[in-house]
Design a binder for these strands. Structure first.
Lengths: 404, 404
DNA sequence: TACGTTTTGTTTAGTCCTGAACTAAGGGGA
DNA sequence: TCCCCTTAGTTCAGGACTAAACAAAACGTA
């Protein structure tokens, strides 16, 4: 019988799983080095995990001058997670494997302002989960635009959804009977980047999203900054133009009011580039066709964003800035204004900071939310709290059952 | 004989000392709770520390319904530290006790651009240290305006001092034969605030300094954010006015170029408020007398600063903002413009963020630098690295010697 | 083919720390 | 007064983890 895992070992065991999930197969020696643990302990842990059927031995690698390493890999059927992106008018749902790869995706209508929205949401998730599969469902990650007090309890404040003090986490947990982790959507993306993306190679970076709103997540020393009340990264409301246009937050000249999708569309209509019924797609098409008024609108937005991000780079000194979001579809036009403004606004010693713009799919948001679940082992009893422990328990228990 | 401390226990023991130094006397139970350690371990640790003569038992407190607590306090003669503020034209030096209280202070001339500046600096520090006292000197903390790669090695880049890749830490260490911790001056202040000031009650806060330059330090989850290359908090070069006045960093419209001391003085001269030979004191005097042109200059600066800090609050969601620095002498005039701009630029949910403006003395900078030494036990083998271990070793060894 | 080198993985003795049970020392209510 | 309750502090068995020595399995060289 496997050793009864306590809270501490459980975390370390999960770290092994997370590492294998995030970085692919690795040898015991590699794992020990990367997780800053002694080889001796790794022998112990992997013995347990092999016994529990959570990992398996793969082929040996060719020797690099010494004994060849026996690689270890995740047993893919060990677990899966569901990620949900909540928007004002729809939900995006994905199911991911333990390695973060999407196995199923769906988009359904949703009315965030409905009186029954909480039960609607639960029903949509329940429908998506469907019948029990052989692979156990570890939990549900939910990404929302707004502040979340703590991942565990999941109380949400969101101007965009019109939610105040909504106990999203508790309700879903009760309705679904599964661990539920709620987080700000950009923060979730940052966790996903840290786990599966560019962020793997960096301890300090910024994730910036452009689209309807503008958001950021800050990663310092490998973990995401949440702030006092989970509200860090709200760069959409940075004041950038004194006396500028009014923002939906009530203030004037916010970054979002300058470079958000609505602002660009409004400017496009104002200047006659697109018609009154057209949206951001038409504006982008116009720019793609080479319409100079359209490219100017994106260029101006790039300029404003560039100056604002330069400020963030000064404030936080990141290794890299990652730009994501729906707005990146038109990045070629943004960059025209962004690059010169961004570089010129930086102190000479920071001009070299790379900006990575990643391709974007609609389900990326939901994939980020799913990463909340997959990543819980990382934060040792940290933000995810009780729900994180529960996710770990589910992962370990399903295996333990097949073994006793 | 006391148990031979290994690297791990040493850190925990030091954490006890640091807590007692920072928060005053406490019971074993309190210490265990605050340091997230079991009562059992605390019994063990305090036994050692009592044996080493580093702490002592104080009076009992009155019972709060149960057994009364035996309070423990630091033995004040256990150690002292020296803090140095390096400015372009002078040095400020202080000696502090293990509780952070200043016991001696001095200010000496210094030329940061001199060819012999490193040996001058070492000589000034050596003179200040003076003859050996009964209380062992744990180390030297040095605060500089600029980026510091790591506290331990102490390589400095500072535009203000005209230093590039200056190996300050290594040189001083060799010359003085003492542990030397070098850090950005605002970061050092933040550490001091966290240890002795308002920051004791907060895990997430901002420290902002106004004076010749404008700087900030960011505290997240109790520790100071340094960024990828130790350059976090450089808010002096936030771009705030597109196409604004040129800044000494080479860019245009930086915050520092708008609200730094030089900018205010220049504006005062421009508008005829003060004469060509007058400085910031005369401008402040004029404002104190009620000169409306002078108060307007400070008010405008307050307005600009308020908007910029609102942006920081959005980005980082701190519990409180602490304003420090020479510039606070005229805060009553700043606040006139600051308060409305700051509050109005915040999202409604953040309007309540308190701003604490603290009284300022010239030696505060140096006191902050000294806190680097006193605080080393806090960062478990973290930023201070080898030098931190050395400080701990000195603290423990002097006591161990009186015991064997 | 024998032998040192290098890297992987395991075993063993021992340290750090915790949880749980316990003692110590007070307060307050019947 | 006696008994229970609460809080402080200690003791002790046991688990997590490490360092160090060791075994295993390749490669390179003569």
């Amino acid at each position: 019988m496997a050793i009864r895992p306590t809270a501490r070992t459980d975390v370390t065991r999960s770290a092994v799983l997370a590492h294998l999930g995030a970085h692919g197969p690795a040898s015991r020696a590699d794992l020990a080095r990367n997780l800053s643990v002694s080889p001796a302990l790794m022998t112990q842990l992997t013995k347990d995990l092999l016994g529990d059927g959570l990992i398996r031995e793969l082929a040996e690698t060719r020797s690099q001058g010494g004994r060849p390493a026996r690689m270890l890999g995740l047993v893919q059927s060990a677990g899966r997670a569901v990620g949900v992106k909540v928007a004002a008018d729809h939900l995006a749902l994905v199911e991911v494997g333990i390695d973060g790869a999407v196995s199923r995706a769906e988009s359904v209508a949703f009315d965030a302002s409905s009186a029954t929205m909480l039960s609607d949401l639960a029903a949509s998730i329940r429908a998506f989960i469907g019948s029990r599969s052989a692979t156990p469902l570890l939990g549900i990650g939910v990404g929302v635009p707004g502040d979340v007090d703590r991942q565990g309890t999941g109380v949400v404040h969101s101007a965009q959804l019109g939610w105040q003090n909504t106990p999203l986490g508790d309700v879903l947990r009760r309705e679904l009977g599964l661990p539920v982790l709620v987080e700000n959507n950009v923060t979730a993306l940052a966790i996903a980047e840290r786990l599966h993306g560019v962020g793997r190679q960096h301890e300090n970076f910024l994730v910036v999203t452009i689209g309807t709103g503008v958001g950021a997540a800050i990663v310092v020393d490998g973990s995401v900054v949440r702030g006092a009340r989970g509200g860090a990264g709200e760069i959409g409301h940075l004041p950038v133009v004194d006396g500028g246009p009014r923002c939906r937050c009530g203030n004037a000249g916010c970054l979002e009011a300058m470079v958000g999708e609505d602002a660009l569309v409004a400017r496009g209509r104002e200047r006659g580039v697109i018609g009154g019924a057209d949206g951001i797609e038409q504006l982008r098409d116009a720019a793609d066709r080479g319409d100079s008024a359209a490219t100017a609108i994106f260029g101006e937005a790039g300029h404003t964003l560039g100056r604002a991000l330069a400020g963030l780079v000064h404030t936080l000194d990141p290794e890299i800035v990652i730009v994501l979001g729906e707005g990146t579809a038109a990045w070629q036009h943004w960059s025209f204004g962004f690059e010169p403004a961004f570089r010129a606004s930086l102190m000479p010693s920071r001009r070299g900071v790379p900006v990575a713009v990643e391709t974007w799919q609609d389900e990326s948001w939901a994939q980020g939310a799913a990463a909340l679940v997959i990543s819980t082992p990382f934060d040792a009893e940290g933000v995810a709290g009780e729900q994180g422990t529960e996710v770990r328990r589910r992962l370990v228990e399903q295996a333990g059952g097949s073994d006793s």
